[in-house]
Each structure stands twice: as structure tokens, then as C-alpha cells.
Design a protein around this nucleic acid. Structure first.
Lengths: 135, 135
DNA sequence: TTTTAACCTACCATTTTGATATGTTGAATA
DNA sequence: TATTCAACATATCAAAATGGTAGGTTAAAA
């Protein structure tokens, strides 16, 4: 299940995209607009910045900015970064190893499930979530 | 993400389906075959029994049995029961309420995601996971 | 040099996860 | 009828994840 990290990350990205004609957007403004604790948002936004989805600039006039256009952000990229993985079962997480896998009867279904999840979240981009005018 | 509860539940259901010509299957046997703690399985199987997916009989010669044929168990029914819900976000859980929902920009995407998840897991049945001979 | 705002580190309460332990009830069998 | 088997019930628990909070440091502009 997608936790608040992923959900808040999406809202932050939308918020920035909608304000993005205004240059860099300070997290303070975002936190106020979205009614989410700024301190908690910090821990989420740092993932997006390190992952290259956002650019942060310090000091006066600073804040965050998108590094691409909204249509270049599939939701999968945002959620994979903040949730750590989109794998629906631990067995499919990167680096996971299971001795049952050669004969596991459930593995194919989990792989199919993973593919469906990834396909859906890769087919929707940030641009699809914006106000029509901002697209 | 699907936890061990759901994953083990699937394996138990497959195990019972494959042995089901032998009448009632004691949990002890299943735990041994699947190499999972019997006591932990108990807490999972009770959900399946209460949900009507399995029938349990006590005493000597007792055990568990399917209440339907394997093709009548969509995986969604097994996983929904053991995981509590298949909703990908807390906002979509039964009984959940959110004051943002009337204007939430992410809600439609979560609903679509939920629909995709439900569709996939409803389209695969227990029968699809069995050995070809047991189908 | 003061203000602003990102960045960094540490901690913490609550919930969920993944069990274990110790029984009790009910059905068959010897 | 006593014994055995196995479901059913309840309590507890360690570890991890979740959802934060607190306090400080660095860098950039005014």
C-alpha cells in the first residue's frame, strides 16, 4: 500500500508544477498550502531531490523547482523513489532472494501483478493531474 | 504491499486444493509441507474459515477443506480477506473519510489504480495456480 | 551581517508485522 | 469411556515500518 510518503510526494510535485512559473517554490509555502507539516515534508522532498526529480536552491529566493516538464514525470518514478519500491511482494524487491523461486507456484502471479502496477503508474504522468490550464 | 499473511494464505489454499481428494487436510501437514510455522498459519487460516473460503472440522480426521472448486476463488477474494483490504491508499479503504476528496487532484488516479489492482487479482483464480493435472 | 530556506542528524510514539506460548473445545477411535 | 488428534481461542512479544518532531548547520541573497 502507498503510504503518506508517496501520497504527499505526489501532492508536492503537483503543487510545484502548478506554481512553477513563479521560479523556486519554498517548502514553507507548499506545507502551508497543502496543510502538511513542513518538517515531515522535508524528509520526503529530500528523496525527490536526491533522485533528481527536483532541484533545490538554498537561501533567500530559494526553494524547489521541477527538473523537467510535468509530462516527463510518470507517477511510477515519483512513487518508486519515495516508497522505495513498487514491488507488491517482498519476493520481488530488488536484491531479494528466495530459495522457493525456482518452483514457487505463486511467483508468476506476483510478477504479473507487478507488471500491471508498473504499467498503470508509468502510463500516468504529473501533467495528467494538473489543472487543464496548467497542462 | 502484500504481506506474508496474504502470501501464505495463497500457498495454503493451493496446498489444500492439490490435496483435496484426500478429504480434510490438517494444518500440521500443510505447515510441514510449506515449511511455515503452524501457529502462525493458524492465525491466517482462521480468517479464511470465518470468511467462508475454507471449512474446518475438529478432532481426529479433521482439518480444512475448500468450500468451492478452485476456479471459484479469485485471488482478490483470498487476499482481500487476509490483507483486510486491497485498497492501494488509506483514502480508499472502506469507511475512510477525507475532507480533501471533493477537490483532491490525486484521488482519481488512486481510484484508477485500485480498479486496475482489483481487475487483475479478480481475473486470476486459484485454479490458475495449480499443477496442470489438478486443474 | 541579517534573513531566508535548504539540508542534515537524531530522536520518538504508535501501529503493523510476524510470530510464539498456552491453553480449550469438539470429534473420532481404541 | 479414556485417549488422541486437531481446530479454535487468547495473550504476549520483538522487530520493523510509519508518521512524525526537534534542533542545528550551510549557503545564498538583500
Amino acid at each position: 500500500m502507498i503510504s503518506t510518503r508517496g501520497r504527499y510526494a505526489l501532492r508536492v510535485m503537483i503543487d510545484i508544477a502548478e506554481q512553477s512559473n513563479t521560479g523556486y517554490i519554498p517548502l514553507n509555502d507548499i506545507a502551508t498550502r497543502q496543510a502538511i507539516s513542513e518538517k515531515y515534508l522535508e524528509s520526503i522532498v529530500v528523496l525527490l531531490t536526491r533522485g533528481g526529480l527536483l532541484e533545490g536552491v538554498r537561501g533567500k529566493g530559494g526553494g524547489y523547482k521541477l527538473t523537467r516538464t510535468p509530462d516527463e514525470y510518470p507517477l511510477s518514478s515519483i512513487l518508486r523513489l519515495t516508497e522505495g519500491s513498487l514491488a507488491p511482494v517482498a519476493c520481488l524487491k530488488e536484491g531479494a532472494t528466495c530459495e522457493r523461486s525456482p518452483f514457487c507456484k505463486t511467483l508468476p502471479v506476483w510478477k504479473g501483478f507487478y507488471a500491471v502496477i508498473d504499467h498503470y503508474l508509468s502510463g500516468v504522468t504529473l501533467a495528467d493531474l494538473l489543472n487543464p490550464t496548467e497542462k
